[in-house]
Design a protein around this nucleic acid. Sequence first.
DNA 1: TGCAAATACTTAAAGGCTGTAAGAAGGGGT
DNA 2: ACCCCTTCTTACAGCCTTTAAGTATTTGCA
Lengths: 189, 189
Amino acid sequence: MARAGVTVDRLTRAAADLADEVGFQNVTVSALARGFGVKPAALYAHVKDIRELRVRVAELALGEMADRAAAALAGRSGKEALVPFAAAYRTYAKEHPGRYAATQLELDSESLDVSAGRRHAELTRAVLRGYDLAEPDQTDALRMLSSTLHGYVTLEMAGGFRRHPREVDASWSRALDALDAVLRNWPPA
Amino acid sequence: MARAGVTVDRLTRAAADLADEVGFQNVTVSALARGFGVKPAALYAHVKDIRELRVRVAELALGEMADRAAAALAGRSGKEALVPFAAAYRTYAKEHPGRYAATQLELDSESLDVSAGRRHAELTRAVLRGYDLAEPDQTDALRMLSSTLHGYVTLEMAGGFRRHPREVDASWSRALDALDAVLRNWPPA
DNA sequence: TGCAAATACTTAAAGGCTGTAAGAAGGGGT
DNA sequence: ACCCCTTCTTACAGCCTTTAAGTATTTGCA
């Protein structure tokens, strides 16, 4: 019986792809094993349990998002940075719903703390540099920005905006206008 | 063998309580049956499948949130309405994480469309009345408001804000200041 | 080159879950 | 009292995760 050539990386990528197809919650060890032409138990040689697999997918996704965010930022600042950054975020989520869902795992797990999660957070903070906010306003604004992007994308993908005819792309663009406006003119305490 | 007195309502409330304890995703038919001192199969006399149970929990939660939102609004408008409305939202989510998670089910399911989901959406729109925005700005603002609240609460509960020392309550308050500011001064197209 | 150790994989099995089908037991209404 | 509807149990099929023990393949080193 020839070996299937499973590795942690190939497993993680397969899990991410499967998540994008069938949803993050529906990724199972069994389904992955089937994809590799291998028995489920075989995968436990590469991964401790399904939880580890999920964390790895989250790391992968956060890394990919950070890459796109970095490219979108590329020397720009202010609204010139905000808009493409936000677009990269939303596009990634829609292209990779399973991977995006993975990033919503309890962010506590130390693993995510390091590596990709931190990097993505720092890039988000970089967006704010053009708005020159002093602490603690910067952190407050960062939290609001993250919330709005994450909330928008989540609600949109869950179908929360489908009940109203207004085109979502247009609304999105106006939300960014509003975000830009409030960041430029952050209210005093 | 005396009957356990299971009803759809008692089942739904038990599921909601269990969700708040162990997480929405970890609510199982088996665990609920255990709680009622009954075999799992017995519950299928009251509920078609676990999906229906989840939808019922979502409806329950949306109804409870709408009740609180209505009380928080009570004749107020503008920031006077926004702040308690947002507080009701965030408090509910923190007190009832499992119920709150239930509200994030694919909102497509027709059942949610009617009843509680609609009611909650209308209350959120009511918050905006004090800001007198014409369409389509009102819908755009509604989407942004919903996104920010949902995103903030989600990220906070997932631990996304725990890495920075800034107190979350203070940040939240400033986010509402910012939201109020931008709603009062919605940028022109 | 040859063989021992490390690694990948299989089989087997325990235990948990959802859901269906068939039958027993409880209760209400006549 | 009896019938019938509803609730509940038993039994089972099928899926899942995870562990343990054994077999096969590959690696690395003498």
